[in-house]
Simulated scan of single mutants.
Amino acid sequence: MTKTLGNFTGRLLLVGCGNMAGAMLDRWLGAGLESAQVAIVDPFAAPRASIAHFATLADWLAADGAAEWVMLGMKPQQLGDVAGDLAPVVGGETHLLSILAGVSLADLAARFPEAKAQVRILPNLAARIGAGVSAVASLGEADREAISALLTPLGTVVDLADDSAMDLVTAFTGSGPAFVFRLIEAYAAAGERLGLSADDALRLATATFGGATALLAGSSEKPGTLVSQVASKGGTTQAGLDVLDADGQLVALMTNVLRAARDRGRELADLARGEG
């Protein structure tokens, strides 16, 4: 694979390497990041060949000391548990990257005031295949060229002026793939109820959603225009749309879904600050 991380030459310490951080790491390694540039501190993460793996920060400190690039990839409510041990790692030349839901730049700056920059990143799981979305906001003297080099292989990068909208973005794009997967699952289940086999229903649903989103992504037209190209007056598509659109229930449902996810992000922020 063509190396696409040529502008990122630092060494990256991952504190926590669960599903999201692991997906990012897999993509980075596939895009040319050398395994020698990465270390992981996580007692629960599955070992990755040739990547240094430490159970605790104390173990890593004994071996290496401060780091130029540190990414927080554990659960947000664990921040208080690791912040004290992490402080000696985060010095004046450290970029502190965080993918922790609900943990603001102000929270990071309060916990790690010595960092050269605090960078909040909101990725999603499609980063694993380079088709994700990463919203990013930062404080301090961030090396934007290096950050761009690190995030671009993950997919679309959206720079935010500040992180005031991050709780909503967390729900909208971070949680979004799970909502789409659930919609596909429900679509397939409905097909099965009406007579398709389970396997055929899932294959057809996956291909239908995949083709529709690819068509939209490659088009300059709005979704409503594409809807009108599929539906005809009095036809089968319109009959289904009449159910979807009745009383604005679909938009109301999705609004409630996003609100619940956004509000949970705020609750997690309180837990990370020890206020929950």
Rank of each mutant, 00 (worst) to 15 (best):
A83I: 08
A83N: 08
D85S: 13
L86M: 04
P88H: 04
P88G: 03
P88C: 04
V89S: 01
V90C: 05
G91V: 07
G91Y: 01
E93I: 04
E93G: 05
E93W: 01
T94V: 08
T94Y: 07
T94M: 10
T94G: 06
T94E: 11
H95W: 15
L96E: 00
L96M: 07
L97D: 05
I99C: 08
A101V: 08
A101F: 02
V103A: 04
S104T: 09
S104R: 00
A106Q: 14
D107R: 00
D107T: 09
D107P: 01
A109N: 04
R111Y: 01
F112P: 01
F112I: 05
E114R: 15
E114N: 15
K116M: 12
K116C: 09
K116T: 02
A117P: 06
Q118I: 06
V119W: 07
V119H: 01
V119F: 06
R120W: 00
I121V: 10
L122M: 15
P123D: 12
N124F: 12
A126K: 12
A126P: 14
A126G: 11
A127F: 03
A127M: 03
R128K: 15
I129W: 03
G130D: 09
G132S: 14
G132D: 14
G132W: 13
G132M: 15
V133S: 07
V133C: 02
V133H: 01
S134P: 13
V136M: 13
V136K: 12
A137K: 07
L139T: 06
L139Y: 03
E141H: 09
A142D: 04
R144C: 11
R144K: 12
E145L: 12
E145N: 08
A146W: 12
I147L: 15
I147P: 10
S148N: 12
L150F: 11
L150M: 13
L150P: 10
L151W: 10
T152S: 15
T152L: 15
P153F: 14
G155K: 03
V157K: 08
V157Y: 02
V158M: 15
D162V: 08
D163I: 11
D163G: 11
S164H: 03
S164K: 07
A165E: 13
A165C: 13
M166S: 03
D167A: 02
L168F: 00
T170Y: 05
T170H: 07
T170G: 07
A171D: 08
F172M: 13
F172I: 08
G174K: 03
G176C: 04
P177H: 05
A178P: 00
F179A: 05
V180M: 03
R182C: 03
I184T: 10
E185Q: 15
A186M: 09
Y187E: 07
Y187G: 08
A188R: 04
A188M: 05
A189V: 01
A189F: 04
A189Q: 06
G191D: 00
G191W: 02
E192P: 03
G195Y: 09
A198S: 10
A201F: 01
L202C: 01
R203H: 13
L204K: 02
L204G: 08
L204I: 13
A205M: 05
A205Q: 06
T206H: 13
G210P: 06
G210T: 10
A212N: 06
A212E: 00
T213E: 05
